[in-house]
Design a protein around this nucleic acid. Structure first.
Length: 894
RNA sequence: GCCGAAAUGGCGGAAUUGGUAGACGCACUGGACUCAAAAUCCAGCGAGACCUAAAUCUCGUAAGGGUUCGACUCCCUUUUUCGGCACCA
């Protein structure tokens, strides 16, 4: 009887389902004395195309871990669900008129069937679906928690809005406005990323991907919901140290958060050379700039504002109004892409001047689109000598360049250093130096900077900079900040690139935002008891294009009233972005059917954090940053007990087509997992995906490769089953295994155990060892049941179906899952005989088989007795002998 | 441009507290079995030198240099590929 993968796989999948083999007991019934292990996949978006071979790669790895951990006595949580809100389904609805709910269900059913075919050991009773009302009720609930919270700067954490202190100087009319301005979820009326083709706005994090897909993204002012993720910049950055994540993902988040240290400097403004604007009463007396190089302040020769800067209109002088307005208009017309494209710098003069606080020098104020309103203060001081962009701009507009930093190698030529016992070093300018060194290259450097031939942007020593001249960049910056603070002209400041999260979408297929807009103009949240706020049925899913969601047209849904006050109200018609549901799904898996709370606290405390999280790196700054943020809010409010959700993260690599390029329909190189399973079986596919190489590597698919895996499983089958009779092979016996079999077995246990335990996800070497063991057993005349059983246990996490079958055929009771993982004996796992290399001058000249742990002296003797070695050292002087036990002997001879 | 990862046979890959380079699989070649094929089994398989074989030797882990008795592994320089960011002041 041959190995019939189809029959066997169907049989065991049915068995597992009927017996709920992989069910994680409810929290009440759980044996809490056992250690826990939460192993999670990034749940998929169930697209219409179904699963592709990339999905099962990570899922197989987590499945191996889950099965292994269960065998090692852990309570394992290994769930699966659906991230099912999304534009693709909605676009399909627009095209076909099919309700997204129906389409979503179809896709989910397809995905579920496919996943079950691969034999993953999920606890399907915990399946979640982000589009299910029972699920998104809690997504909305968490949103309300954010709406009803503020960020306490002193304690660096979120707190309920009821604890917000209202400053004394706020009038009663303004209180609501003040409260609204502090909420973690708030409405902002600012330029946003508008995508006309999709008919919706996008988060900053989403823009690059959509542009790559060929969509356009323009900046457009709109009233939008935002989440105050920027308040968590520092914690999101610092807490990366607490988690075991790949370096590159941490790096991506660090870059995205983009912390930079520096100072804010206040510049007084003159509308023209004579007047100072409203010096006493107006707050626009100053314009603030952010700089990371306060040490270069003496080199600031002009100031540039972003065209959208609110003070531009105020400071522009009469004669410059036309050109300034034209420029602003042109900028606003540009898309985000055009705006950030590197091109020749443009800009116009406002007619105003700023006063440099350190030397009272008047410098012109210009506007240019290379300064972004969204970063820092939207204004910069320009130091063209030491900033490339400023240099480029200065050369084009013929602005002054002053060198204020020199590279370290010029230090001795520029300064004379006199040691002083009390004050350390006193620096005297180069002009007064007694021993004048050749300073021509220093002078050339100054000339080059002034002429724009050189732009030195690195750290060095300050020159031409008054009280900081002679100081190293770091010290000069500190000294400057101190001066600014003493003179009320600025302060130390830390800036982040991270922006608040644009959280609303003008689409139908998302969680409705549970907010009412009352007739008196106030904004009010629904009561928790009113959740879920469900999506109404609708005529057309088409985006309106006006920036309003299709929900706006459902009058009987939109128009309502406030139960508390009786005021007429309109519902918020924006929905939440796709990322919302995935921000907390890992918590719902812990307690998926609870109607009273999103996740019961004791259960949360037991299961969290996720011990191992596996998914693609495309979520590095989207899902992984957003969910960390939500988790921290929930942590601050006391709903979860851990600061970070995902302790250990691993990114699987991409699987390419057989031609070595990314799989795509247009290239026709897409591999369909259904066809692979049909031909070779799920076990072969699982085994092959793990054998292709380390999990994180990007590697091409190979049909011939998977045929090889199938061949191997056939070999495993025939090792135990006699194909002619269908019975066990005659050479299998019950007696105590002899040493040769024990040896290979224990070596294999050791290798596989260590490979799974070390977390490197290099299962290719475990499989190689399993193959070596099979090859070895084929050479044996006698097979021992015990050895075969342990072999099955070892390969079980990789290929569960065939092993369940062989396990029962060897006379055992299913499921093999309930058997303990085998232990190895270190002594038995050691090799008896080992090959050592004898080399002369580092070149291997001979080898010998010897007993393991043969002592150094014997090794040396053997080397000198070796004929080939004698040949190579004859007539030479022995200079040195290096002996490494169990490895080699090297003789150095001349 | 900046940051990160990587480069080993025909292919996927293995080997690092520095110690036999190429485990394991694929492809390929030869043989056995067969009327034949498939399947299976056995053997070979980095390049080169000597007519052939064995033996032996030389070269070989992107390129060049260095440290060392000994380097895929450590250090410096360069090239290429992939991923990310990109006027972030």
């Amino acid at each position: 009887m041959k190995y019939e993968h189809k029959e066997i796989e169907k049989k065991w999948q049915k068995y597992w389902e009927e017996n709920k083999t992989f069910k994680t007991p409810e929290f009440d019934e759980l044996d809490k004395n056992k250690p826990k292990y939460y192993v999670l996949d990034m749940f998929p978006y169930p697209s219409g195309e179904g699963l592709h071979v990339g999905h099962p790669e990570g899922y197989t790895a987590t499945d191996i871990i889950a099965r292994y951990k269960r065998m090692n006595g852990f309570n394992v949580l290994h769930p699966m669900g659906w991230d099912a809100f999304g534009l693709q389904t909605e676009q399909y609805a627009v095209k076909t008129g099919t309700h997204p709910k129906i389409r979503t269900e179809e896709c989910i059913n397809r995905f579920r069937t496919q996943l079950k075919q691969i034999g993953f050991s999920y606890d399907w009773d915990r399946e979640v679906n982000t589009t299910d009302e029972k699920y998104y009720k809690w997504t909305q609930w968490i949103f309300l928690k954010m709406f009803n919270s503020y960020f306490d700067e002193k304690e660096n954490k979120a707190k309920p809005i009821s604890e917000l202190e209202i400053p004394d100087n706020i009038s009663p009319q303004e209180i609501n406005k003040y409260i609204d301005s502090q909420r973690l979820a708030y409405i902002a009326d600012e330029p946003v990323n508008w995508c006309p083709e999709l008919g919706t706005v996008l988060a900053n994090e989403e823009v690059p991907e959509q542009i790559e897909k060929g969509y356009t993204v323009v900046r457009r002012p709109m009233r939008q919901w935002k989440l105050r993720i920027t308040k968590y910049s520092e914690r999101l950055l610092n807490d990366l140290e607490l988690v075991d994540w790949p370096k590159n993902i941490k790096e991506l988040q660090i870059n995205w958060i983009g912390r930079s240290e520096g100072a804010i400097v206040k510049f007084k403004i003159k509308k023209n050379k004579q007047d100072i604007i409203n010096p006493l009463k107006d707050i626009s007396e100053y314009i603030e700039v952010f700089t990371t190089r306060p040490d270069t302040l003496f080199g600031a020769t002009y100031m540039v504002l972003a065209p959208e800067h609110p003070l531009v209109k105020e400071i522009t002088s009469e004669e410059n109004i036309t050109s300034v307005n034209n420029y602003i208009e042109n900028t606003l017309k540009k898309s985000e892409l055009e705006r950030t494209e590197l091109k020749e710098k443009t800009g116009v003069f406002t007619g105003a001047y700023a006063v440099n606080p350190v030397n009272d020098k008047e410098i012109p104020v210009l506007i240019s689109d290379y300064v972004l309103m969204s970063y820092g203060t939207g204004a910069i001081m320009s130091v063209p000598g030491h900033d490339k962009r400023d240099m480029e701009f200065a050369l084009k507009f013929n602005l002054e360049i002053i060198p204020v930093v020199i590279p370290s190698e010029f230090k001795d030529k520029a300064f004379k250093v006199i040691a002083d016992e009390k004050k350390g070093e006193i620096i005297v300018s180069g002009q007064g130096m007694q021993e004048i060194k050749d300073t021509t290259d220093l002078e050339k450097y100054f000339e080059d900077v002034k002429n724009g031939r050189t732009c030195f942007t690195e750290e060095g020593y300050s020159v031409n900079s008054g009280f900081i001249t002679g100081l190293k960049t770091k010290a000069a910056s500190d000294r400057m900040i101190k001066w600014l603070e003493e003179n009320n002209s600025g302060k130390r400041s830390i800036n982040y690139k991270l922006r608040d999260w644009l959280f609303s979408r003008q689409r139908y297929w998302g969680e409705p935002v549970p907010i009412l807009h009352l007739e008196d103009g106030t904004v009010k949240s629904l009561d928790e008891s009113e959740l879920p706020l469900t999506l109404p049925d609708i005529e057309s899913y088409k985006p309106t294009g006006t920036g309003e969601s299709p929900l706006a047209s459902v009058a009987n849904w939109v128009n309502t009233y406030d139960k508390e006050t009786g005021l007429i109200a309109k519902r918020e018609t924006n929905t939440m972005p796709q990322w919302a549901g995935s921000c907390w799904y890992y918590l719902r898996f812990i307690d998926p059917h609870n109607d009273n709370i999103f996740c019961e606290k004791d259960a949360e405390k037991y299961w969290m954090p996720v011990d191992q999280y596996i998914g693609g790196s495309e979520h590095a700054v989207l899902h992984l940053l957003y969910s960390r943020f939500w988790h921290k809010v929930l942590y601050d409010l006391g709903y979860v007990t851990h600061n970070e959700p995902f302790q250990k993260l691993f990114n699987q690599g991409m699987i390419l087509g057989e031609d070595g390029v990314k799989m795509s329909k247009s290239r026709g190189n897409v591999i369909n997992p259904d066809a692979v399973i049909e031909q070779f079986g799920a076990d072969s596919m699982r085994l092959f995906e793990m054998f292709m190489g380390p999990l994180e590597a990007t590697k091409p698919w190979s049909t011939e490769g998977i045929a090889g895996m199938n061949r191997f499983l056939n070999r495993v089958w025939r090792l135990i089953i006699d194909e002619r009779t269908g019975n066990l092979k005659d050479i299998i016996c019950d007696s105590e295994p002899e040493k040769k079999s024990q040896k290979i077995l224990h070596q294999t246990i050791k290798k596989v155990t260590e490979d799974i335990e070390d977390g490197d996800m290099k299962f290719n070497t475990s499989i190689a060892q399993l193959m070596i063991m099979v090859n070895e057993l084929y050479k044996h005349k006698k097979l021992y049941k015990e050895v075969l059983e342990k072999f099955l246990l070892l390969i079980y996490p990789f290929t569960p179906h065939i092993t369940e079958e062989l396990w029962t055929r060897l006379g055992n009771v299913p499921s093999i899952q309930n058997t303990e993982w085998p232990r190895y004996d270190e002594e038995l796992a050691k090799a008896d005989m080992i090959t050592v290399a004898f080399s002369v001058n580092g070149k291997v000249r001979s080898k010998a088989e010897i007993e393991f742990d043969t002592d150094e002296h014997t090794l040396e003797q053997m080397a000198f007795d070796d004929e080939k070695i004698i040949k190579h050292i004859m007539g030479k002087n022995i200079i040195k002998i290096i002996i490494v036990k169990n490895k080699m002997v090297n003789i150095v001879a001349k």
